[in-house]
């Protein structure tokens, strides 16, 4: 635990230097977006990686967080800093609702994945029809730069904000790995019947996980709204976010502390390389993600982090947990 904590601090410190050391605006931006997707991946990882419940609809939480903070700000004049925790809570509630329905009736595996996908789609259609979201036209957040407004004229502010969120997600995950709740969540992933026989309330454990995971993704949504100052139903609730959220930890290593971080940087590195090689063809990144997903599942089921650990252990002469 000490070593992991040190690694987190070292990573955050190194990242904190990026805005000062990296001269190129493009690369600073690239790191920032990699951190943003790492946050979504961390959120997914709590439910999917540690809990074994694969969601295909994390956009439901992301979009709810984004819309909640934007609507509170635009229609009700709530300060974005105050809207932020509200966005997290709203997204957590959506998580609890979806979790209550699907776990109460024992949905697992692909059935659970389909339900989450369906909820994200329902929310997208809903956002397209109710006036408060601005329907299909979208919702524009008025430009009013200032830290008090969670808007930064200089991107450095946004950089540190997402870094703080990622730090929070890492610490939360670290706590998870060393808590009773985390131990029970992993037990539920490994074998539900055995967990129940040992006194684990499977329903409540899963419900807590999806609430936490949803709340974290909601914070990501709130951040996104403040960064781009524009939302529409396709951005907020579309499948792109759901796919990113699950691909990042799958590539990096599900159920590991640093997997989503590693996955996000790797995935977006590859995606940039593909753009260099093939130009900006529409939909290319999604096609690439599909191929990557298949390859990862086939050849590296433990992700980059898992493979790194195994290789390292082998290099060090058959370490204990190789």
């Amino acid at each position: 635990m000490r070593r992991q904590l040190l690694a987190i601090v070292a990573f955050l410190a190194a990242m904190a230097l990026v805005p000062h050391l990296v001269g190129s605006e493009f690369w600073r931006n690239w790191v920032m977006m990699a951190l943003f997707y790492a946050l979504l991946g961390q959120a997914w990882n709590i439910l999917g990686g540690y809990g074994g419940q694969f969601s295909f609809g994390h956009a439901a939480f992301f979009g709810t967080g984004a819309y909640c903070s934007a609507i509170l700000h635009v229609h009700y004049g709530v300060n974005p800093w105050i809207a932020l925790p509200a966005a997290g809570m709203a997204a957590g509630l959506v998580g609890a609702f979806i979790g209550f329905l699907s776990f109460r009736y024992g949905l697992r595996g692909s059935y659970f994945a389909l339900v989450t996908l369906a909820f994200a789609e329902v929310l997208r259609i809903l956002a397209n029809t109710v006036p408060i979201t601005g329907k299909g036209v979208g919702l524009l957040i008025p430009l009013d730069p200032g830290a008090a407004n969670m808007q930064f004229a200089d991107r450095t502010g946004y950089f540190y904000l997402i870094l703080a969120f990622v730090g929070l997600a890492l610490l939360l995950t670290l706590w998870l790995e060393h808590s009773r709740f985390g131990a029970r969540l992993v037990a539920v992933r490994e074998n539900e019947d055995a967990a129940r026989a040992l006194g684990v309330d499977v329903f409540r454990t899963k419900l807590a996980a999806i609430t936490l995971s949803g709340a974290l993704a909601g914070l990501g949504g709130s951040y996104y709204a403040q960064l781009f100052l524009y939302l529409d139903p396709g951005i907020a609730y579309g499948p792109a976010i759901s796919v990113e959220a699950l691909l990042v930890p799958i590539v990096g290593g599900m159920g590991t502390l640093f997997g989503p971080l590693l996955g996000s940087f790797a995935l977006h590195g590859v995606s940039e390389l593909a753009k260099l090689a093939f130009g900006e063809a529409a939909g290319l990144d999604l096609a690439l993600y599909g191929v990557l997903l298949v390859l990862m599942v086939m050849f590296m089921p433990n992700g980059l982090f898992g493979m790194g650990r195994t290789t390292l252990a082998r290099l060090l002469g058959g370490g204990r947990d190789a």
Binding site: R180, A183, R184, V186, E190, N191, A194, A195, L198, G199
Partner: peptide, 29 residues
């Protein structure tokens, strides 16, 4: 109870497996 058809938490170590049971009355990791 135990299971006739064994149900280990296969991905966890033996210690972590037993700790899931131990957590019932021990909140601290």
């Amino acid at each position: 109870r135990t299971f006739q058809i064994v149900q280990p938490f296969a991905g966890l170590s033996v210690r972590e497996n037993i700790a899931v049971g131990a957590h019932l009355h021990r909140p601290g990791r």
